[in-house]
Design a binder for these strands. Structure first.
Lengths: 146, 146
DNA sequence: TATTGTTATACTCTATAACTATA
DNA sequence: TATAGTTATAGAGTATAACAATA
């Protein structure tokens, strides 16, 4: 293993640990206590990418179609999504986020940002440290982007 | 809101998004498919901090005592933890990780690191970029540390 | 025949309430 | 009386298998 392979692996381990701990901490914050992570992830996907079929949502969330049917049932009962039959292909069901669903996601993201801002502000990060975090965020997004 | 408050909030939003996406992606990798995130988190806690009571584990994982009893039942049946009565206070049950449990956690963390190294190596990060990621990891750990 | 979605069934993780044993 | 843990029960999220409707 070369010196730079070693540096890459050490960096990966550091980043993996820090990422899991921070995500775990922030995940507690949500607008509605009854909202699960799974439901929130579906709403966030619909909010960002727009109308999707059950199968497309299942693939994106890496769950089975029956699981997604069940989750959409729950979200529909709570009024956060709506089903519309696809007239062009009548096997399909199009799932949309409602205004209420949009607002719940927005509130949750705001609350997580508030929590993180609160935790960060106690540490009085310098401008350089904030820049390091922003630069790292951009690098992390390149890692996960397809 | 001052200019630096604004920078803090923008940084927090960037970091929150990058952290959730990366954690979500890495969470898929685990040594045993039958192992849930919840079980893995309990094992990782026992591995890092040693023997704990049911109540202490429940508090740390932010679940109720009955939930933790049930999770420990599952882990015990799989041979990843062991229960020992506390002779000093016989209401208590001490939970330990077994060698098999230790190995499962180690394998999962290795697999996640392998996955992350694989994703990162395709991007050919420079030494400076790796340093940015390591520095940011240290800052993120300061944010979550108590 | 293949695809889309649903229903049926079962297991895990979660909760609250009620219980036993011990301090 | 308070604490530690378990059992009973219920709801959500997950899976696989079997099914109906449509392409």
């Amino acid at each position: 293993m070369s010196a730079s392979d070693e540096a890459l692996r050490l960096t990966a381990t550091d980043l993996r640990m820090a990422t899991f701990r921070l995500a775990r901490r922030l995940r507690c914050a949500r607008a509605v206590d009854a909202m699960s992570d799974a439901q929130l992830a579906v709403l966030a996907t619909l909010r960002m990418h727009g109308t999707r079929t059950i199968t497309a949502l299942a693939e994106r969330e890496r769950v089975t179609a029956p699981s997604m049917t069940s989750m959409i049932n729950g979200l529909e009962e709570q009024g956060y999504v709506r089903r519309t039959p696809d007239e062009a292909d009548r096997r399909r069901v199009l799932v949309d986020i409602t205004d209420a669903g949009d607002e719940i996601v927005a509130q949750t993201l705001r609350q997580r940002d508030d929590l993180l801002v609160g935790m960060m502000s106690e540490l009085h990060f310098t401008d350089d440290e904030l820049k390091t975090l922003r630069d790292a965020s951009a690098l992390m997004r390149r890692v996960v982007e397809p």
